[in-house]
Design a protein around this nucleic acid. Structure first.
Length: 574
DNA sequence: GCCGTTTTCGGCCCGACTGTTTTCAGTCG
């Protein structure tokens, strides 16, 4: 991945220049360029060949030359030289929360620690307090920061973030003088992993809210406690930031606190060009200082000449340009979802009988639920063989006769075997309404082999959907190597659907792959992969991913009515 | 280092909190 290599080099150059005390705007230029390259939808190497690098925002003559050098030689002399001049320990120290470039450099100049352990020893023996700007408190904070680095600042998955967030929302909501409350930050943007939780509160008594927040029983440590902004760490080690604002600046504060940082910087730059200033209190005219928008998010965007941008899109990956031109997608919403296309029953490793699954689906207001139990080769999950699958079909049809306005679809999560063939014979697959195929073995095969396997599975006319396509488990297992561009081309040709698996540790496809799939004209579906009933709730996470992938209602299979869905599924078999 | 219907030079997002100061620099989001 050349893009990521360029991104990393540019970001590291920015760090190195920061240590040197270089021009801050030059540093920003490198960071901005790093992001620009990462978000590129086209191939960098192609842009080099076509001489179009300077068309990338934030890339000028100099950086274009540096990108060219990286592509052509695999490294960058300017970067290597900078690296040689900067002690590694300084970069390492900058990883510690609370230590920035200035402090790291001061520490190095005074004590020359070789690594973080040596710094820790110095701090423990109270040696670092006394140099200019550092006293006992800073020393203490450095030790705390080192603890955190040692633990590894893990990001939590969306599911966990949702539950911690709701605890705090419940607590804050019940306080007197709290008029409204909103989750912000990356959780509101539905990022697949969350580092900290941001909550915005409307109140005329900010101090009271702050006091109650830092005294909450879930709080282990107070990181900052100001009059309108406080941060704590929970018993689980999760950082939660709460910000209190007045009702009249709610919209502006919500935009600011939702981010992303890159999105905010972009809209503030845009504001500058219009002679305006944006902060968390509103949009202001530079000349008069007059507040022209602040109460609602819509007002803030509109004051900048933009359509309202849904939180899931606020990553500065083209949404601002689209909002300017009125070209934002009309994103799919949870209410558009008519059914779940991947659930298990107690016929394999699910918890609930078929009949109960039907009741659960109907209770949610769904029109259908696709029962997709595992197949024979997946023995650990009690996979079904052909005979059992045929029996299950009979059972499902029988149950369906007794329910109105809802249907269980006969499906399977059939294994894609190591040669790309399916674990169930076509003559049985033919009997099913829907065939979901996925890989559960041979993860470590080569990219070509794995890609070939999935292509072969898609070429089977009975394969409706490829489930959890990348196989990743967030924080546990890397995605397997697949050529997604190739896969999406074949998916389009063969009318095969790609799944957005909404299981919290999977979220697979991820946002960038979803957006890419859409570019190829591939249809997607959301399945929760439910084994126990509460997991059906994960549909909301799946919709979040879909929205982050810029999907509209028409891009998804399970926004179709039951009859349209059946028609669409039959089309591939003809 | 980038960028331009005010500019090819002089700008570059903006503010809260902390710890150290005695008016502010550093860090963070």
């Amino acid at each position: 991945m050349k893009k990521l290599q360029i991104r990393d080099i540019f970001n590291q150059i920015a760090d190195l220049l920061e240590i040197k005390g270089d021009n801050p705007f030059r540093i920003k230029a490198y960071r901005r360029a790093a992001q620009s390259v990462e978000n590129l939808s086209s191939d960098v190497e192609e842009l080099v060949r076509e001489g179009k690098l300077e068309e990338i925002p934030g890339i000028g003559k100099d950086l274009a030359k540096k990108i060219k050098e990286i592509i052509e030689t695999g490294n960058l002399k300017y970067f290597d030289d900078l690296m040689k001049k900067t002690p590694k320990a300084i970069l390492e120290m900058m990883e510690i929360p609370g230590i920035g470039p200035k402090t790291a450099k001061a520490l190095y100049d005074n004590f020359k620690p070789k690594n973080i352990s040596q710094l820790e020893a110095l701090a423990r023996s109270h040696k670092i307090s006394g140099i200019p700007g550092i006293k006992d408190k800073t020393e203490e904070n450095i030790l705390k920061g080192i603890e955190l680095v040692k633990k590894g600042k893990e990001r939590m998955n969306l599911g966990m973030a949702v539950s911690i967030n709701s605890e705090f929302v419940r607590l804050l909501k019940d306080l007197p003088h709290v008029k409204n409350i909103s989750t912000a930050g990356s959780l509101r943007r539905m990022k697949e992993t969350i580092r900290d939780i941001d909550i915005l509160v409307i109140s005329r008594k900010p101090e009271e809210v702050m006091d109650a927040f830092v005294r909450a029983p879930m709080v282990k440590e107070i990181l900052a406690h100001g009059s309108t902004k406080s941060s704590i760490r929970t018993l689980e080690g999760v950082q939660v930031d709460v910000r209190v604002v007045d009702e009249k600046s709610y919209g502006a504060a919500l935009v600011y606190f939702t981010g992303s940082k890159e999105h905010n910087i972009h809209i503030r730059r845009l504001a500058n060009q219009l002679g305006l200033k944006v902060n968390e209190y509103g949009v202001f005219e530079n000349k008069t200082g007059k507040n022209i928008a602040s109460r609602r998010e819509e007002d803030v965007y509109s004051a900048l000449g933009l359509d309202f941008i849904p939180p899931e899109l606020r990553e500065d990956t083209g949404e601002i340009e689209c909002a300017k031109e009125g070209r934002l997608p009309n994103l799919v919403a949870l209410k558009d979802i008519r059914g779940d296309l991947h659930v298990h029953s107690d016929w394999s490793d699910g918890m609930h009988p078929l009949k109960e699954m039907a009741t659960l689906g109907k209770e949610r207001g769904y029109e259908y639920l696709a029962i997709c139990d595992h197949t024979q080769s997946l023995r650990v999950a009690g996979g079904l063989n052909e005979k059992e699958l045929k029996e299950q079909i009979k059972e499902i049809r029988k149950i369906n006769k007794n329910i109105k306005g809802f249907e269980l679809l006969c499906g399977t999560e059939v294994d894609i075997l190591s040669d790309g063939s399916l674990d169930i014979k076509d003559e049985v697959l033919k009997e099913l309404d829907i065939v979901v195929a996925s890989i559960h073995s041979g993860f470590k095969q080569s990219k070509d082999k794995l890609t070939g396997r999935v292509i072969k599975a898609m070429e089977n006319k009975y394969t409706s959907i490829i489930a959890h396509p990348s196989g990743r488990l967030i924080g546990e297992r890397a995605p397997y190597e697949l050529d997604f561009d190739e896969l999406f081309k074949v998916a389009k040709e063969t009318n095969t659907v790609f799944e957005i698996n909404a299981f919290p540790s999977r979220l697979d496809l991820n946002d960038t792959n979803i957006r890419n799939a859409k570019k190829y004209g591939v249809t997607l579906s959301i399945g929760t992969d439910t084994h126990i009933k509460d997991q059906l709730d994960a549909m909301a996470l799946g919709v979040g991913m879909a929205r982050r992938g810029w999907l509209e209602k028409g891009d998804l299979l399970n926004t179709l009515s039951l009859s349209s869905l059946k028609k669409k599924l039959k089309r591939k078999r003809q």
